[in-house]
Design a protein around this nucleic acid. Structure first.
Lengths: 340, 340
DNA sequence: CTGAAAGCGCTAACAG
DNA sequence: CTGTTAGCGCTTTCAG
């Protein structure tokens, strides 16, 4: 195999004694070429180490095979996990992921999406970020489908995949109430996030359905240090006997604070419940009771929606909610006779 | 602003009453255009919502602005952290990261790199994977610079950035010996990884320098479950009084196993030391003594090497080792009068 | 400084 | 089935 830097289809054509378009056909999935040509071309291509230039193909075909992924932070284990699964699923379908880190700042995100569009991506996945309506309008105009991951927006034209956050929140309330807890606290995530709002809404519904109300509430913004401060504030006086934390990432910081700053035992003194079921939640140092966001199914749905929209621009937007089961572990008192 | 799907420079040119090349010049960094044209073009472009097509630019200029990143797994927190930092640093320089997940399987990685090359990337960063020498040769021929991240190879032509793994391993040995430990075990990572080999080599050097030898050795392959099994095997009889684990990811599983399966106290019964200093290592449930791989500096070096090679193909390959400090926390007995 | 013209490497009609 | 012919949208000589 004699390699050369950047071999073109033209060179392969010459060596194979065929036209350049014949070479193209051999390398284009749905094209027709006689067995003879295929053999000749393949041989010449191997000899020269030829591989089609994806960018050139993208120019003319209008399909780049690139999916833009906007993601805000990777410190919450849920996201790397999702990124890995997304990338694998997309790779399997012949797509690749171009990553764009975006700070939560609204303006920045719009800039980032513009940049993504510059790459003629075939689609966009926005994980854990919200977009301005002009922006989504712009994508629609540009003919680039987009789906929101783990975030939903009012815009009915925008596809979105989430877990059933409201239902999940409600389950936590029921579980805690059933466990006989009387003073229940909530540590909120960033209030701009739909996940935060929905989880809290469901939780409150569940509480109130039984005539209860929140004993205490603090905001942790999905940030570790802030979760710690929130916990300290919440337990400064009249401490709750249970805390629901808006996500696992914070919940683990809350547990550390409870145990090491406040010398409290979990779950004997306080029950703690999180949300996400990230891999670390199952680690025995935490053994966190939580609501599982089924990352596999969420990813599968996301990819499915995106690809159908790519393959058929007229496909209707879909908003999918994946059922989110409560995973009972040891960080919260388990109600007697709790249904498995 | 009247938007249309995919506005071309030609359309902007018409609206502005200039030639298409004039438009191109206005949007090309190092090009010359009179103030007048710039104003006219900018106005027309804004009006139409025009943005240059990065792919078309890439075709003719040969620079895609894309950096291919190969990464094997994202469950070890070290990598998401690095990915985020890399992406941010590169974004700041006008580049974007195209992610390729690769299984550790050697053959697969070669395939993946071929795919990357298809995108005419400006450079490749291979994190935590090893490449065949033909492959690196191929990249060189293709004129695509590559740098290895957190992995080194014998090939002197290959740039690589690592932490000082040998030195780090030695520090751990000295620390443990100084702490009076007599039976010291080692839980190895995947033996194909240079990090694993170097850390162990340094560790053994340190041990032997004081006339000691390993009390026990098991392999965890950087995998959680295997680390647990390794621990169980190691402690089945004649348990060590200290264990050095090849990375934090496994070390935390080891701690869980020690505490919850074997009912051992850390550090009273066993000292545990890890490597990486991932963010979770500082969580108080683990409070893991470890060797820090300074991700920031490693990323900065990686970007620096890659960009200089992109901007000057004749730049010599560089192999950088970042000093790796021991971070003393509570998971291992601290020697009396330990410096700092 | 500016427009015209020539491609970058490839796919997609179009005749044959 | 095959070669020829147009471009995809842009940058870059090259005259002027």
């Amino acid at each position: 195999m004699v390699e050369a830097s950047k071999v073109t289809s033209m060179e392969v054509a010459k060596l194979a004694g065929v036209s350049q378009s014949a070479v193209s056909r051999v390398f284009t999935p749905g094209a027709s070429a006689s067995k003879k040509t295929v053999v000749k071309v393949r041989k010449a291509a191997d000899q020269l180490g030829y591989r089609p230039n994806v960018l050139a193909r993208a120019m003319v075909s209008g399909k780049s095979g690139i999916i833009g992924l906007v993601v805000a932070y990777l410190d919450n284990q849920f996201y790397p996990d999702v990124l890995e699964k997304l990338s694998n699923a997309l790779q399997k379908k012949g797509y690749h992921v171009l990553v764009f880190m975006a700070s939560q700042t609204a303006g920045k995100i719009d800039k980032v999406v513009e940049e993504i569009l510059d790459f003629q991506v075939d689609g966009i996945i926005a994980a854990s970020v919200a977009l301005s309506s002009e922006l989504s309008e712009r994508c629609r105009k540009a003919g680039v489908p987009m789906v929101l991951f783990n975030r939903s927006q009012d815009d009915p034209l925008m596809s979105a995949v989430t877990s059933a956050n409201v239902g999940g929140g409600r389950k936590v309330a029921e579980f805690l109430l059933e466990g006989g807890h009387k003073k229940i606290g909530y540590i909120a995530g960033w209030e701009g996030a739909s996940t935060q709002r929905d989880r809290e809404a469901g939780f409150m519904q569940g509480l109130r359905a039984t005539g209860f109300d929140l004993h205490a509430r603090e905001v942790g913004n999905f940030v570790l240090e802030q979760a710690r401060d929130a916990t300290l504030r919440m337990f400064a006086q009249d401490p709750p006997d249970a805390v629901f934390v808006a996500n696992d990432h914070m919940a683990m910081a809350v547990m550390d604070t409870l145990r090491f700053d406040l010398n409290l035992k979990v779950p004997q003194d306080v029950s703690v419940v999180g949300y996400d079921d990230v891999s670390t939640a199952a680690w025995r140092a935490y053994d966190l009771t939580t609501v599982r966001q089924p990352a596999n199914r969420m990813v599968a749905e996301t990819v499915d929606i995106l690809l159908s929209k790519i393959n058929d621009a007229s496909a209707a937007p879909r908003r999918v909610e994946i059922d989110a089961p409560l995973i009972v572990r040891g960080s919260a008192r388990i109600p007697e006779g709790w249904k498995s």
